[in-house]
Amino acid sequence: MAVVTSARAVGRPRRLDRSRAAGVLLVLPSLLYLTVFVFIPVIKAFATSFTVRDRDDAGNYTYRVGLDNYNQLIASDTLRSNVIFTVFIAVASVSIVFVIAYVIALALRFGRGPSARFLGRIYIVPLFIPSVIASYAMITFLANHGFVDGILQAIGLPDGVFPKIVFDWKGIVITQVWLSLPFMTVLLSSVLLEISDSLIESARDVGASSWQIFRHIVLPLSAPGALIGVTFIFLGVIGGFTVPYLLGPNAPQMLGVSMVYYMTNYFEPYIASTQAVAIFLLSLVAAVYYVRQQFKREIR
């Protein structure tokens, strides 16, 4: 007697397969895009940085794999000071914007009254100003014989005393702070919102002053979320081009600017790529932390 066994009876339920297939299909286009336009360039950047181009006696180019580019990065005074300059600006910008944004976020969370409300409307403005424009505005604002210089001289500052801010690291930092303020404030605001009122009230109830509440309760509880914002801004500043290009000094340069110069002016894609990888390695810790934390917060 033949026993008919349905193939379906032992297979996986159809519904799940369809869901998986649909899932793959829907994600495929974006994945394809990222592979071609992000992953491949990144891998190429790494590969290029390890490619050394030599010229032989006949004037022909030969290529080999080596660390020469990296050696040049470390040995060259210019390039080395670029690296230090880049890190310094990133750290300075992030620290300053963190403090200012935190004050705003605290005011938004705990403040009442017109000042707090006003802050709530104004901090978001830089978000809508393209970085090119912001940079230019800062140039006219902070240049020697610019607006601030004018105001200060009108109240008595002698000419020539105003420090060099534009085409100097100070200009870059101030502009980056200006541009990063909305993002940092929004992030800190949402982090502070997660701290319930009763946690604050219970601290007041046991006798803590506002400063003590901030130091022992608010700050530690806001730290993990705040760090995500800090790393994101850090990554943005360290790989920035527009602001240092328009507002930075000729030397030292931030790596983003020097990278583009090596690429387009000196036609040296190898050193350019090496600098790209250098920036990446500099921000690796921040990048890893950012990805891990973002992941933990979002994926449940």
Binding site: L199, E201, A203, I217
Partner: peptide
């Protein structure tokens, strides 16, 4: 005060 939600840090 003992809060309804306990408010433990």
């Amino acid at each position: 005060m003992v809060f309804q939600s306990y408010a433990l840090w």
